[in-house]
């Protein structure tokens, strides 16, 4: 449906915006390496079913997300490493990994290796942006391009919510993927503050600056 496709396009756009920023400005300043590393873990643990993906659409996106995220990690860890300030990126990711691991082991859809990793990736994605938002809070402001990246990334999961409602209404099975929905709502809520500042400042041509 339209919400789902728009969400995935927004996700893809966010990655292109981030890559554009890093390559064009030859700098990854303002970007949390920890959040980016968490996203790599998210893609790898979620797409373990890559060889059995029935839909070519999903298959292509999975390849795109894993490969582009590997490239982002390479750029941040190798090519533009000096532009990355670890002193600003101090969020304790152990808590996020622990949170996702506990929920994944306690409430997977089924007790299979793939399902536990899938649930882990869903919970981890829901909170993976926290190191980035924490960094933003420490610096108090962000480049416009970084704000656009975060807006596109947040919009992706927000658009999945109307997609789930649409699917629930239109599909005869009325199936709800509880883990994905609860984690997806949590993920969107974490962005709400950012969305508000983006709307009140960046969309009106001002600099992204925290009050």
């Amino acid at each position: 449906n339209l919400f789902r496709v728009a969400g995935d396009m927004s996700h893809l756009a966010s990655i292109f915006i981030l890559l554009h920023k890093i390559v064009q400005l030859k700098s990854c300043s303002g970007i949390s390496f920890k959040s980016q590393l968490l996203y790599l873990i998210v893609y790898i643990t979620r797409y373990l079913d890559l060889p059995w993906t029935p839909s070519p659409y999903n298959f292509i996106f999975k390849i795109l997300f894993i490969s582009s995220q590997l490239y982002i990690i390479y750029l941040m860890a190798r090519a533009y490493r000096p532009t990355n300030d670890p002193n600003l990126d101090t969020f304790r990711v152990e808590y996020l990994l622990g949170f996702a691991a506990v929920l994944a082991v306690l409430f997977p859809v089924r007790y299979t290796v793939l399902e536990i990793f899938w649930a882990f990736s869903i919970w981890l994605e829901s909170v993976a942006i926290l190191p980035q938002l924490f960094m933003l809070q420490r610096t108090g402001e962000a480049e416009a391009i970084t704000a656009h990246y975060l807006f596109a990334l947040g919009t992706y999961r927000a658009l999945y919510i109307p997609n789930w409602i649409y699917r629930y209404v239109t599909e005869p099975t009325h199936k709800i993927d509880t883990i994905a929905v609860v984690a997806g709502v949590l993920q969107t809520v974490l962005y709400s503050d950012f969305f508000w500042i983006y709307y009140t400042k960046v969309m009106k041509g001002e600099k992204f600056k925290l009050p």
């Binding site: 079913d49 999903n58 997977p108 089924r110 299979t112 290796v113």
Partner: peptide, 10 residues
């Protein structure tokens, strides 16, 4: 070890 809950979203 394959799960089969059929997650069809990204």
């Amino acid at each position: 070890w394959r799960g089969d809950a059929g997650h069809d979203e990204l």
